[in-house]
């Protein structure tokens, strides 16, 4: 089994999608990433991300990486 390394990075993809009235499926089709992979990202289960995926999401949602991710305060439960 993979060794889970704890982190405090939080993904705000669900909020960005809601604000734009988009679904995971629609975004996945738009940027050419699988629905499953985007769901992993949205549900905070991703452990790493390709710059190409990040670029595609930022282009599609017209946002910056900082809008998509934030780091939770120290002391908050690790993911």
């Amino acid at each position: 089994m993979p060794v889970e390394e704890p982190h405090r990075v939080v993904c705000h993809l669900d909020r960005l999608l809601a604000e734009r009235g988009l679904t995971v499926t629609a975004l996945a089709e738009q940027i050419g990433v699988t629905n499953v992979n985007l769901s992993v990202l949205k549900n905070q289960r991703a452990r790493a991300m390709r710059f190409s995926t990040l670029t595609a999401i930022c282009d599609a949602l017209d946002c910056q990486p900082g809008d998509l991710f934030s780091v939770a305060a120290a002391g908050s439960p690790p993911r």
Partner: peptide
């Protein structure tokens, strides 16, 4: 394989 698991 474990390294790429969770890679988006």
């Amino acid at each position: 394989e474990q390294d790429v698991e969770g890679l988006v």
